[in-house]
Each structure stands twice: as C-alpha cells, then as structure tokens.
Design a protein around this nucleic acid. Structure first.
Lengths: 155, 155
DNA sequence: CATCATCTGACTAATCTTGACCATTATTTT
DNA sequence: AAAATAATGGTCAAGATTAGTCAGATGATG
C-alpha cells in the first residue's frame, strides 16, 4: 500500500467520510480542491470505485446547490439493488467488474474468503481463456449470475 | 551457489524483502533498475520462482500507482490427492465426471456443502451452455482444475 | 551439440491524470 | 416573465505511467 495513486487516496478519504452512515453528500469542487486535482478526477474515482458492483449507488444534481450523493447498499439484501446489479451485468461482464462484485459480497460477509476465492477462479480471464473474448465475457456473466442466484435462493 | 544467475539473485533479494511479513509489494521498474536488468526480467523471475506450487500468489496493477504484490501462502498436506485428480482430469471432462469429483471432495471433507454447490453451478452443462460440446468439456476441465488449485493452500 | 534456462527488447494492455468543452439548475437582471 | 449570468456537475479523449506478453538471442549443462 505504499505506491497509492491520488485516486486511491481520494477513495479512502470518501470511505472514511461515511463513518457509520449509509450515505454521504459531497461537492465535487470541494473534494477536488482539497486534493488539488481537477474536478473531473472525482468523476473518475466515483466511476471506477463507487459502482453498483462495489455496492454503491450514486446520484447527483448540477447547478446551484448541486451535489454528488453516494449511498452504500447491500447487493443481495434489496430486490431493487439486485435487479440493478443483474441489469448492469446483462449477458456480458468484464473480469474487473466481476471481481468487484465478489469483493463486495465478501465485504458484506455474504460469502467467506475461500468461497470468494473459488468464485474468482471460475470467473478469471485465465481460466475462461477462449479464442473469442466476446464469448469469455458472456460465459463469465452466466457463471456469475448462477452464483448470485444460488446465494439468493439458498436456505 | 557458485554460478548464480541474476534471476537467482533477484529471487533471493525478494525473499529477503519479505522478512516476517506474509506479503510484499514492489514496483517492477524499481527492482529492474536496482539490478540493472530489463523490466520484463522481473516477470520472468516471478513466473519461474513465485508460483503457486512454490507457495506464492501474485497480484498486480498497471498504470499510475501500479505494483506487483507477492503473497506467501501455506500449502496444504493433501497435495498428492489434488495432483492425481488434476492428472486424471486432463484437459476435458464431462459433467457427470466433474460432479462425481465434487461429491468425492465433499465426502472427504475437503470442501463444505456450500462450496460444493457453488462449484456445481460453475461446472453445470446449463451454465456453460455453448454450441460446441467439445469446448464445454474443455472449459469445465479448466474451471475444475482452477478450483483444485485453490484448494492447494490456505491464506 | 542438443536442450533447457535465462535475458532482452519491441510491442501490447491497463490504469490514472488532465483539460477542453458540454449540460443542468439556481439566481439575478431586464 | 424572459433573458442573462452564475454555479454546479458530466463527458470524452489525449497523454502519462505503470505492468504483461512473446519471440528471438544468448548462455549453461549434460
């Protein structure tokens, strides 16, 4: 953790702001000023680290009194959230996004580390290596959705 | 230790860096500079000396703030069983045979029921549905072997 | 001298940073 | 009201900064 990018640092800062709350509201320019970066970098941090795959929902408003609101959600705990997630997956998903989902499930204690590792194995680029990249992403989506459904309906 | 290659020296250096820690994080270019070799030589050292068979896991990230992280893990005792299973699987396996292996792993208490269920999801004909049956069996073999490789160690 | 391990470098891929330009909403002026 | 202005956030593409891959050259060993 020595060579962190400024994006990593901003990510950590925002997560710290949450504290025990389930949502935070920020002004983009304030955060950008605070870390001395261009405002659009905040969009980058949000787009890459606070996605639905990571267990976050984001809303914003422009103009005077504008804001960016980030909400932390449980992937399997809420039907609407799960639907959003499945929609985001669609029938194809990249390795990085799939990995983020597994990480989120682990963070939420829905799965153990070993279960998560096993899932990562089945979803990895290396394991699924096939000539056709398009096919790999489709396969990964099917396997991941199978996992999610299994977790959802288990009792 | 007379004829040590530079790869051997880099290997020894990295292992020294571990100290009592279970993982280290390096910048590829730094190590390469330090030993005056091209960066890709570091990949060579890692690929030949920090494998899972030797008890190491490797993760990396490119781009700004990029790194290579090497983690030392404990290899488990029943490696021979896993080896023979991997041998038996080869590069293709039918659904029923894969299911039998999962059942055996569960009977032998190598995996929990939940882990077994998740594995079955990823190995099922339905999940892997692809036009080419031959391809399905190859994919299943790769996924199953990946699972077995994860069972070789504990974090 | 045949084979395997090591070393190199050109090319590729992923991630982060920056800035110019765009879109939306609120407030002030006419 | 309507129009202008101010105050937000959004998008996208270029450039910078890492690491990965692969094939060929070179070296070591039996």
């Amino acid at each position: 953790m020595e060579n962190r990018s400024i994006s990593d640092i901003i990510e950590a800062y925002l997560k710290e702001v949450f504290g025990d709350d389930t949502q935070i509201e920020i002004r983009r320019s304030e955060i950008a000023d605070h870390f001395n970066v261009v405002p659009s970098q905040i969009n980058y941090v949000i787009k890459t680290r606070f996605t639905i795959q990571n267990g976050y929902l984001v809303q914003s408003k422009r103009g005077g009194g504008g804001y960016i609101r980030i909400e932390r959600v449980n992937l399997l705990g809420d039907v609407d959230v799960l639907n959003s997630l499945v929609q985001a997956i669609g029938n194809t998903i990249r390795e990085r996004d799939a990995f983020a989902i597994i990480q989120t499930l682990y963070n939420e204690k829905v799965i153990s580390q070993r279960e998560g590792d096993l899932m990562l194995m089945a979803l990895s680029k290396q394991t699924l290596a096939v000539d056709d990249t398009n096919m790999v992403n489709k396969l990964r989506a099917r396997i991941l959705v199978s996992f999610l459904n299994r977790l959802r309906y288990e009792s």
